[in-house]
Design a protein around this nucleic acid. Structure first.
Lengths: 249, 249
DNA sequence: CAATCATCATGATGCATGTTAACTTCCGCG
DNA sequence: CGCGGAAGTTAACATGCATCATGATGATTG
C-alpha cells in the first residue's frame, strides 16, 4: 500500500477505500533515489507526478549566485509535485535530501481520475492546497520571526507533520538534514543556524544531533516559534501531540 | 462580464467562451467593499469564494503581537479565496487594501462545476496553484534578497501581474498601497521601506508617490530584484512587457 | 478654515545576523 | 586503520536593518 500515508488524518480529505485503490492502481512504477539528486528541473514539461514513500525531498529556487532557498520539504505520504498536473511545468526544482523511494503516477492516469471521480479530484486538489498553506506559514516564519523562532517553528512544524505520518512520537524523530539545509529553509547562514542550535540546546528546548531531533520542551518550543498547527489541517482527534492531548471522556 | 480578467492569458488555462459563461452564471452577487475591511477570518467555515473585479485585496497572518505578514496581494481578475472551496476553512485572514468590488460564487455552484466540467475544474485548480507559485516567489524574496531587492522584486511582480490584467502599461500603474503595506509584504519596517524607496528614486530605478508607481529603468529594477516572471505562467505572446518585446517577424 | 490624523521623511544608535577564518569531529573508504 | 572530505563548532569583526525619536506633509472633516 504505497498510498497509505497520503492525506492520512487530513480534515475532510482522507481517502475512502475505493479512492485509495484507484490511486494505487494509477501508480506506474516505484523508484529509489540517492541522496541529494535533482528529480525535476524548473521549466521542463512533466507528464508524471511523484508520491513520496520514504525519505525526505525538497523543492527550491536558486538565486543568481547559486544559493538555494528551499520553498518546501516533503515527508513520506506527500504527493510532492502533484501541482505539476494542472501546471504542466514547474517553476522550481525538486530534489532529494536523503535517499528516498517514491511512486510515480502518470498524468494520463490523473486525467482519467479527474474525468471519473470528482470527489477524489477534490481531495487531490486539497493536497496541493495544503502545500500552499505550508508555504504561507513559511512566509510568516521568514517575514516575522527572528532566527531562534524560525528554527523553532520549523522543528515544530516538521514534528507535527511527522506525527501525522506516524514517523514521530511527538518528541523524537529522525531528520536527515544538515545544518546547512536548515539554513536554506530558514533564510539564515549555516554559522548562525549553528548558534541557534546551541542556544536551543542550552535552553533545554531541543537537541538536533546526528540526524535525530529530540524535543525537550515542546510547549516552550511551540511558544518560541509561535507555532499554531491549524494550517496543517490535521484531524482534531487523530494522533494528538502529547501537549494537546485532551482528557478522556 | 465579471470574469473577463480571470486566467486571462494564462498559459494553457485561459477559459473557453462556454467555460466563461458557466462561471459567469455561477455568480450569485456582486459586492462593494470599503478600504481596509476584513472579508474573511481564519478558522471560519466558508461556503462561497470571491472573484476580485476592481481594487486590491490581501491575505495575511498575524503574529503574537498583532503585526501582520502579508502572504498575498490580489489584483482584479484574481479568484482570491478559491482555495476555500476544497479547504472549507481558511488558515489566514482576507481583507481589502483599497476600496473594491467583487463577485461572489457559492461553493454549491463550484460543486456543480466540479461534477460536470472536469476541464474547467482543472483550470480552477490551476488558478489556486498560480497563487502557490507566487507564494514560492515571495519565499525566495524574503529568504534570499536584501531590502532593496525585495522591494524591487515586489514592484516588478506587481507590474507584470497588472500588465496581464490590462492595468499597467509596463511602466506606470496605480497601486493604492502605503509604505507600511509594502513593509508588511517585504518583511521590513516602514522606516526602512522609506529608505529603500528613496534609494530607488535616487538611483533612477523607480518612483512610488501618491499611489502611483513609475518604473524608470525596468531592466535594472528587474536585475536588482532578480525577478524572473516565469512563475506567473503568462502566455509568451500575450501583452509583452516593453523590455521583453521581440522583433516582429 | 482650523484641527486632526495618517502617511512620509530622516537622523542617531544598537543589535541581530552575516562574513571570514580557523579548528574539530565525524564518517566513509581505500 | 589512517586518510580525506563533509559537517559541525567557535571566535572576531562588519553591517544591514530595527528601533526610537521627531518633524514635515498632505488629506479629511467638523
Amino acid at each position: 500500500m504505497f498510498t497509505e500515508r497520503f492525506l492520512r488524518d487530513k480534515r475532510g480529505a482522507s481517502l475512502t477505500a475505493a479512492e485509495r485503490a484507484r490511486l494505487e492502481a494509477a501508480i506506474s512504477e516505484v523508484r529509489t533515489y540517492k541522496p541529494r539528486k535533482i528529480i525535476a528541473k524548473a521549466g521542463e514539461p512533466l507528464d508524471q507526478s511523484t508520491l513520496l514513500i520514504e525519505g525526505f525531498m525538497c523543492r527550491y529556487l536558486d538565486d543568481r549566485s547559486g544559493l538555494r532557498q528551499l520553498v518546501a520539504i516533503h515527508v513520506p505520504g506527500d504527493f510532492l509535485d502533484l501541482h505539476a498536473f494542472p501546471l504542466k511545468v514547474l517553476d522550481h526544482d525538486v530534489a532529494t535530501l536523503t535517499g528516498a523511494t517514491a511512486a510515480i503516477v502518470p498524468h494520463s492516469e490523473l486525467e482519467a481520475i479527474a474525468d471519473e471521480m470528482p470527489e477524489l479530484t477534490r481531495k487531490l486538489w486539497f493536497s496541493t492546497l495544503l502545500d500552499a498553506a505550508i508555504h504561507r506559514a513559511w512566509l510568516f516564519r521568514l517575514g516575522r520571526l527572528d532566527a531562534n523562532a524560525r528554527v523553532a517553528h520549523f522543528l515544530c512544524e516538521t514534528n507535527a507533520r511527522l506525527v501525522s505520518a506516524g514517523l514521530s512520537d511527538g518528541r523524537r524523530f529522525a531528520l536527515g538534514l544538515t545544518q546547512a539545509d536548515v539554513a536554506e529553509i530558514c533564510g539564515l547562514t549555516t554559522v548562525h543556524v549553528n548558534r541557534v542550535m546551541r542556544q536551543l540546546r542550552e535552553d533545554g528546548l531541543c537537541v538536533f544531533r546526528s540526524s535525530l531531533v529530540e524535543i525537550l520542551d515542546l510547549a516552550r518550543l511551540t511558544a518560541l516559534g509561535q507555532f499554531n498547527p491549524a494550517y496543517l489541517y490535521i484531524d482534531d482527534d487523530a494522533n494528538p501531540l502529547p501537549s494537546v492531548q485532551r482528557p478522556r471522556s
